[in-house]
Amino acid sequence: MTALDCNRPREAAAKARLATRSGEHGLAWLAVSPALLLLVGLLFGPVAAVVLFSLTDWQLGSFTFHFIGIANFRALFADPTFWKALTNTLVYVAIVVPGTVLLGLVVALLIETSPGLRGFYRAAHFLPVMSTMSAMAIVWGTMLHPTIGLVNRALGVMGISGVNWLRDERTALLALALIGIWQGFGFAMVLFVSGLKAVPQQLYDAAAVDGADGVLDRLRFVTLPMLGPVTMFVVILTAKRSFEVFDSVRVLTQGGPNYASEVLLHRLYTESFDFLHMGYGAALTVVYLAVIVLLTLTQARLLERRVHYS
């Protein structure tokens, strides 16, 4: 264990070093192995399984199944309910995203303009974000109740006769979108506030020296441009959340009346777990997955391109 060690041939030394380094390899692999196992077992394996299921006629509980090619997808695309659910989801997203983002932005700007009651406002607007949607959906259900609901009572005071919001084909989706905005805009507000805090004061000073010192000028030339990246981010986040709308639909309308408020995820749930049409449900899942992944990827691309100022 002395100088002799170093007189051994170079190859042996190299081998010894390789051993220590592979020891580090081993350690690293040991550290990642649980995650790797679960990644395969709980994420990638299941995704492959869903694709596989979507090509079979398998029903839960039965022991046999056949590959039926793309028959499930053909059935899906021939199903008017699916198209209804898809359009409804898109309409829902188209209402909730701008509503949430705009409301969140306005509230954030107003909260940040002066310190009065700032803490109260922030907490108050954030409360819906933290609340359990299934419980609050029940509450909303009573608020939108045609006779005893707060909404119609308020309208009644103003001399307007309300409708049965959640049972009316024309308003059901709209009412759900309102609930979606209610829950989401506080979060958008918080993200905008953190974006506002990141705007350097010097920019306002510079704008003031350049003559843009009015509230609207500052907003137009400094604040809004600087909020570009955050806005993009909030839009993406809200869109993703809106595509995942489920709780309020399940609790309040279950897709009704007459599929007027049916959305993708609820469709997926009922087909797969109420009717146990696993093959059909899997095909729907594949479509849903494709939509979400496509959305995320395009938006990530957009995000990379659009919002880099530095």
């Binding site: 995820l265 997926l268 899942t285």
Partner: peptide, 19 residues
């Protein structure tokens, strides 16, 4: 692989998890 995993909405895995 982790980044790809981030893309997957958990609801899409419900059927195989259930099975």
């Amino acid at each position: 692989a982790v980044l790809v995993g981030l893309l997957l909405p958990p609801q899409a895995l419900a059927i195989p998890h259930f099975v």
